[in-house]
């Protein structure tokens, strides 16, 4: 089992004819991901990596029954592309590009909620369910099928955590990049609850970092979870970021420092880890 995507998912690529789109489609197929087609407006009828290209997502879905989409487009096209995917019935959208305008992500999120679609990113490495599907840009070498789920804000941290779990024989069920942009398609809390429902996932490692609000939201759901959560937060020694005016302080309160986040997660029942090597140690202590 896995969350959000497995070997049976039918995956399409938006921007399949682009530079990064083509390169990573080839890699994803090489990994065994069930890529069924792609979309680039104006290039319908072409074939890329032996997969059909369509002008619109609706046509691609009709012809291939795609239910997952990976977006490889420059940031300014993401709002349209994601909303197109959501309205065409795609249930899981992965937004790889970085620097997506914040307001655009708010529109995408409204649409996703309305249609019951899960969006991850922007600025995510994607998702990998080892041995089954690799969506995005994650390097295969770090991953191995196993029993721990991971979710993190940063791509490189996802790789290091998996690299550690793989080296110590735990392996992973699914690894999800939440994304590094300021407003994200999904929250830690939402992804944690999906792992909670996955029988194969024996523990979840969540890696957050200084700034933002998503780690704090996770603390609200962890107490209700049976699956243990291990937490790492980057930026304990980082210089404090800038404040966003009075309004930011009134709305987001004192959220944001790495230590505060870690303390909050600790109190909620998560197991804090300082380095990646603490992860296998903690799992062992938990009898996993």
């Amino acid at each position: 089992m896995a969350i959000l995507c497995d070997k049976n998912s039918k995956v399409m690529v938006q921007g399949i004819t682009g530079g990064a789109g083509k390169f990573h489609t080839e890699r994803m197929i090489g990994y065994g991901t069930n890529i069924v087609g792609g979309v680039t407006p104006g290039k319908g009828g072409q074939v890329v990596c032996e997969r059909p290209v369509f002008d619109t997502v609706a046509e691609c879905v009709k012809a291939t029954s795609a239910d997952v989409s990976v977006i490889f487009l420059p940031a300014q096209f993401v709002k349209e592309a994601a909303i197109e995917a959501i309205r065409s019935g795609i249930k899981f959208v992965v937004v790889i590009p970085e620097h997506i305008p914040i307001h655009d992500m708010l529109y995408v999120r409204e649409e996703a909620i309305k249609h019951g679609t899960t969006v991850i990113g922007g600025n995510t490495a994607g998702l990998i369910t080892p041995g089954e599907a690799n969506l995005g840009i994650m390097p295969d070498i770090a991953f191995q099928p196993g029993k721990v789920g991971t979710v993190s804000r940063s791509a490189s941290i996802t790789y290091y955590v998996a690299d550690t779990l793989t080296r110590t024989g735990y392996g992973e069920t699914s690894c999800i990049g939440l994304g590094g942009d300021p407003v994200l398609g999904s929250t830690f809390a939402e992804i944690l609850l999906k792992f909670e429902e996955d029988e194969k996932t024996k523990a979840v490692v969540m890696c957050g970092e200084i700034g933002g609000v998503y780690e704090e939201l996770a603390a609200e759901v962890i107490p209700s979870m049976k699956t243990p959560v291990l937490a790492m937060i980057g930026g304990v020694h980082a210089p404090m970021g800038k404040r966003m005016g009075h309004a930011g302080a009134i709305v987001e309160g004192k959220m944001g420092t790495a230590l505060d986040k870690l303390n909050m997660l600790d109190k909620a029942g998560a197991h804090p880890c300082k380095t990646f090597l603490d992860i296998p140690d903690t799992l062992k202590k938990l009898g996993i």
Partner: peptide, 14 residues
């Protein structure tokens, strides 16, 4: 990336 950019600095301190 920024992720290890931030975390790596914590490791150095650690």
């Amino acid at each position: 990336g920024a992720g290890f950019g931030i975390m790596g600095n914590d490791f150095i301190h650690h």
